[in-house]
Simulated scan of single mutants.
Amino acid sequence: MLRFVVLTVLAALVVAERPEPRYLEEAVEERVVGGEIASPNAWPWQISLQYQSGSMYYHTCGGTLIKPGWVMTAAHCVDSSRTWRVVLGEHDLNANSGREQIKGVSRVYIHPNWNSNNVASGYDIALLRLSSDVVLNSYVKLGLLPPSGQVLPNNNPCYITGWGRTSTGGSLSAQLKQAYLPVVDYSTCSRSDWWGSTVKNTMVCAGGGSLSGCNGDSGGPLNCQVNGQYVVHGVTSFVSSLGCNTQKKPTVFTRVSAYLDHGIG
């Protein structure tokens, strides 16, 4: 059900106020701040995006499996020229459970309006075409996408998931973590004492206190409870340069429903 703006992506085929936003990818070994270790494969659409360095691969970002051959992640995770791979069914980055599937990335589609020099402009979203389709099972499932244009209300329950740092400047979590991050609505998040004009209505804010995203979480899903199901409403984008869990600077996500098209999928 690839309802992302494939129209725009296929066409591509043929500042911000102080404190500055900071992206959450990590170059080498860099977890969700606060929260707890998730049950293994509790978020079966979560993937680990890894890049090759020498003969090794290293986790740098998260992502969401949205079709058997497609992953959604953040544009800033993949706007450099690297050899990428995606690990699905993963829980512990340092251990092989036998549930993992590893796929190469055959093509990267970055939103054509993405500008790495202007965080506040948005468009921090990308699609990865996998080298072959994954096998869907109990440990590898598709993330559910929201209806086009849907905006969740303030305090809607959501969870961020990822292998990012456990604290600002902390170390990487080998095991997938989850943290409860309720939605902060746009009217609140865009207030001058919050994120101000840095945040656009094509973004989702969530959290803003002791729990937050941090380095290594970029590109991963914001999993929100809607009608008894978890729906991927956000792609993890940035936090404040003052720290991952700064008050009134909630984690900011690309709002997935702003980039979906009714006519596809």
Rank of each mutant, 00 (worst) to 15 (best):
Gly219Trp: 03
Gln101Ser: 08
Val9His: 10
Leu10Ser: 09
Glu100Asn: 06
Trp195Ala: 11
Tyr180Ala: 14
Ala75Met: 06
Pro157Ser: 11
Trp84Phe: 15
Leu49Ser: 13
Val252Lys: 10
Leu242Val: 00
Gly234Gln: 03
Trp114Asn: 00
Gly143Trp: 00
Ser173Met: 05
Ser212Trp: 00
Pro153Gln: 10
Lys67Tyr: 12
Ala12Ile: 00
Leu181Thr: 12
Gln46Trp: 05
Tyr186Ile: 09
Tyr23Met: 05
Ser187Trp: 05
Gly208Gln: 00
Ile264Lys: 08
Tyr58Gln: 06
Val151Gln: 14
Ser167Glu: 10
Tyr23Ala: 02
Arg165Cys: 07
Ile160Met: 10
Tyr230Ser: 14
Ser190Ile: 06
Leu127Ile: 09
Leu242Trp: 08
Pro157Asp: 11
Thr83Val: 15
Ser81Ile: 06
Gln175Ile: 01
Asp133Gly: 11
Ile125Pro: 11
Thr198Glu: 06
Thr8Met: 05
Ala27Asp: 07
Ile125Val: 15
Arg22Met: 13
Leu88Gln: 14
Gln178Lys: 14
Asn155His: 09
Val33Ile: 14
Leu10His: 11
Tyr58His: 14
Trp114Glu: 00
Gly104Thr: 09
Thr168Gly: 08
Thr188Asp: 07
Leu211Pro: 00
Trp163Met: 07
Val256Met: 03
Pro182Ser: 04
Ala95Lys: 15
Gly69Glu: 05
Asn227Leu: 12
Ala126Tyr: 12
Asn227Trp: 08
His59Ala: 12
Asn245Asp: 13
Ala206His: 05
Asn94Arg: 15
Ser39Asn: 10
Tyr180Ser: 14
Asn115Ser: 05
Gln101Lys: 11
Ala74Met: 07
His76Phe: 10
Asn118Phe: 05
Ala206Gly: 09
Arg3Val: 02
Asp92Gln: 12
Gly122Cys: 08
Ser218Asn: 05
Arg18Phe: 12
Arg22Trp: 05
Tyr180Val: 10
Gly164Asp: 03
Val140Leu: 04
Asn201Asp: 13
Leu260Phe: 11
Leu260Glu: 03
Leu49Val: 10
Ser241Glu: 02
Trp195Arg: 07
Gln52Trp: 02
Ser106Thr: 04
Leu128Trp: 12
Trp70Asn: 04
Thr83Asp: 12
Ala38Thr: 09
Ser167Thr: 07
Ala174Thr: 12
Asp217Pro: 01
His76Gln: 10
Leu152Ala: 02
Trp194Asn: 11
Gly213Cys: 01
Thr161Val: 13
Pro221Asn: 13
Gly209Val: 02
Cys214Ser: 01
Tyr186Ala: 10
Met203Glu: 06
Ile47Glu: 03
Val86Ile: 14
Ser237Glu: 00
Gly34Asn: 08
Gly207Met: 03
Cys158Ser: 07
Ile264Gln: 11
Gly143His: 02
Met56Phe: 07
Ile125Trp: 14
Tyr109Ala: 04
Asp133Glu: 13
Tyr139Pro: 02
Val87Gln: 15
Trp84Ala: 06
Ala27Asn: 09
Val140Arg: 04
Ser116Phe: 03
Met56Gly: 01
Leu242Pro: 01
Ala16Cys: 15
Leu222Lys: 03
Gly98Ile: 10
Tyr139Met: 02
Pro68Val: 08
Tyr123Ile: 12
Glu100Ile: 06
Ile37Pro: 05
Gly243Leu: 03
Pro40Glu: 09
Thr198Lys: 08
Thr83Glu: 09
Cys205Met: 01
